[in-house]
């Protein structure tokens, strides 16, 4: 393996981990409500921008980051309560258009509260690169990979081991039966939006020291996360992670070996290819249920 290849691989993993977090957000909301939330990218933006804002006001990272995540979760709850919930019973397409509207609104709001400048967040643990097999790795990349891994494990535990997590899965599988079992499906929906928003915000905070942040950073990251979710299979948690990683690596490799001009096209090509040839994605649900 050449040092160059290792370099691309490490960069790809870092970017992929961010895509995976955004894709998980898409999947959680999709599972709970069948809605594809195109405001997912704005949660990423809010995470990064709010942290920059709090940090500029002198709040230490240890407090600024939880505050920014909480702010994004609150926006997620508000989105559910004031935009999605009132339209309950509307078609899924209508709900998706509502989320597109919400994303435009949130971007506009961000330019009012903050500005249209690019901002950079200071790396969490300095910027002395770590040399690894001829390639270099920023300490921030370790943060990205470590936190992403911890989140994936925490989500696996939540959905696999806790009754609340299983109640969320049950609600997405059969809303009527969930109601009859005494599960408050509206709370499940609200929880899904808050959780997705928090995941998006964490992704936005982790990547901000590497890739800058601004009011419109969510457009591209949201799109990439969406592509990753489609690639892995919309609604599948493992699929979102695999889709994110695969997409991140594919993108970095093509940028390195072919041309960085086509980097963003890779995500869209991958998404189209999946939709044409494997509509349920790499790890999506295939019909195995007896009815």
């Amino acid at each position: 393996m050449s040092a160059q290849f290792v370099q691309f691989l490490l960069t790809g993993l870092t970017v992929g981990a961010i895509y995976a977090l955004v894709a998980l957000g898409f999947s959680i909301i999709y599972n709970a409500s069948q809605v594809i939330n195109f405001a997912q990218g704005e949660f990423v933006m809010i995470g990064g921008m709010a942290t920059v804002w709090f940090a500029a006001a002198g709040v230490p990272y240890a407090a600024a980051i939880p505050l920014a995540v909480a702010a994004a979760a609150a926006v997620g709850l508000a989105l559910e309560k004031f935009a999605v919930e009132p339209a309950r019973g509307a078609s899924v397409v209508t709900l998706i258009i509502i989320t597109i509207g919400a994303s435009i609104f949130l971007r506009g709001l961000a330019t009012l509260i903050w500005d249209k400048q690019l901002h950079v967040l200071k790396p969490f643990s300095g910027d002395t690169p770590i040399v690894l097999g001829g390639a270099t790795l920023l300490p921030q990349s370790l943060w990205v990979l470590g936190v992403s891994l911890a989140i994936v494990l925490a989500l696996a535990w939540f959905f696999g081991r806790t009754l609340l997590g299983k109640a969320m899965l049950a609600t997405s599988n059969n809303r009527l039966a969930a109601q009859l079992a005494g599960i408050r499906v509206r709370h499940v929906l609200a929880l899904a939006f808050a959780l997705s928003a928090a995941l998006g915000a964490i992704a936005g905070i982790l990547i901000a020291p590497i890739a800058f942040t601004s009011y419109d950073v969510g457009v591209m990251l949201g799109l990439k996360g969406f592509a990753a979710a489609i690639l892995g299979g919309m609604g599948s948690g493992a699929g979102a992670v695999v889709g994110g990683i695969v997409l991140g690596i594919a993108e970095t490799m093509s940028a390195g070996y072919i041309s960085s001009a086509y980097k963003d096209a890779i995500a869209l090509l991958a998404m189209l290819a999946v939709l044409f040839f494997l509509p349920s994605g790499l790890l999506g649900r295939r019909g195995t249920e007896r009815v």
Binding site: L169, A170, L176, E289
Partner: peptide, 14 residues
């Protein structure tokens, strides 16, 4: 209306 992808025991616990 069982929760098809969940296990029998998870269905009962829910």
């Amino acid at each position: 209306q069982v929760f098809g992808p969940l296990t029998v025991e998870d269905n009962l616990r829910l």
